[in-house]
Simulated assay, not measured.
Amino acid sequence: MSDRLPPLTALRAFEAAARHMSFAKAAEELNVTPAALSFQIKSLEEHLGQQVFHRLNRAVELTEAGRALAPGTRDGFDALNAAWRATQRLQDDTTLTITAGPALTAKWLAPRLYEFARAHPEIDLRFSTTLRVVDLERDGVDVAIRFGQGEDDGLYSIAARKEWMIPVMTPELAEQFPTPESLTKAPLLFDESIRFLDPPCDWPMWFRAAGINFEPTRGSHFSNADHAIDAAVAGVGVVLGRRPMIIKDVLEGRLCMPFKLAIETDARFRFICLQGAETRPKIAAFRDWFLAEIEKTAHISDGLTIINTKDIPAHVS
């Protein structure tokens, strides 16, 4: 048995057949005839000196050798494909692929994108709105905008301002609930998308910061922040809104912040890309625009009392 690797075409044929557990489906994927694919696998077996498939009447099964070989070939071709896509992206200075959460995209990014598009007509933006943690290299994504705590090891990451939350409601509801104490009787809306924060940044924490002994349990719960904000705009109730999610509705008068007490979390939105990619013109342009846009509306914090959740007592005296 030779230590030399078999031909790449033979390994590719094996990987596809092992993934599909079908010579016919693998041949279709690789755009070859089943006979040609079978020949490639046979040559791999001759090179290895043992079979990698049991050929049954209407199916195939991996042998012990095939089961040992399959994970490595799959990972190897995944890595090759990722490297090829990454190399191709280096030649593309006109397309920028960005991933961000659905709520940030809907409430903050989308309403502002015309500004970036006007300043950079040479860049075509492509968005993937998902909360799934992507692999920038494997998934062909240039930039990720993510919210949370912790570090982004091995990546270029720059954090935006700390985030705060504050009660927001329609002006009509604000007339009905004019004091923090009156909110104990208000219909409260719960944004469940930030339950992962530690310490929590939620209604019980806000009431404790306000010196009110109240642990709300009833109300409408939303898994997406933008849905909770939309419900507040519709007058359904009062939501503890995150700054970037509420800013457009507040500035345009659909929502108001009648109480000047906000609670702050150490979690941040971060601009993330592969290490070294931050110098590429299209990525640097979007980073600079992203950070500048945040600063444009920093004045919304003026006049607020902002208390970090770490400084809020566990109980109201």
Rank of each mutant, 00 (worst) to 15 (best):
M205F: 08
V168Q: 01
D202N: 15
G150T: 01
G219L: 02
D142K: 10
L189P: 03
P200R: 12
I145C: 06
L189R: 02
N213D: 14
I166L: 07
K185Q: 04
D135C: 07
R218L: 04
D142G: 01
S223D: 11
R218F: 07
R112W: 01
S220H: 09
R161S: 15
R112Q: 12
E122P: 04
P167I: 09
G211C: 12
D152G: 05
L197H: 02
A110H: 14
E192F: 12
D191T: 11
G219C: 06
A225W: 00
R112F: 01
E181S: 05
Q149E: 14
S157G: 11
I212S: 10
F127W: 09
P178V: 03
E115Q: 12
G150H: 04
S223A: 09
S128K: 13
A110E: 05
R138D: 02
G148Q: 02
D226H: 15
P111L: 03
E163D: 10
R218P: 03
I194H: 11
D226Y: 13
R126I: 14
V134K: 10
R132Q: 15
E163K: 08
L189I: 04
L188N: 07
D153I: 09
W164T: 15
V143L: 03
E163L: 13
E215W: 14
N224R: 15
P180F: 03
L189N: 02
G140D: 07
L197D: 00
Y156D: 01
F116R: 06
H120Y: 12
D152V: 05
L173T: 04
L113A: 03
S223C: 06
R208W: 02
R146I: 13
T129E: 15
A174K: 05
L131I: 08
D226W: 13
T179P: 15
S182F: 15
I212R: 12
I166P: 06
P121C: 08
R161Q: 14
P171F: 08
R118H: 13
F222K: 04
D124S: 09
T170V: 05
P111G: 07
D152C: 04
R195S: 14
Y114H: 14
V168W: 00
A210T: 05
S182C: 09
C201S: 09
E192I: 05
M205A: 14
L131Q: 08
L113Y: 07
S182K: 15
I123G: 13
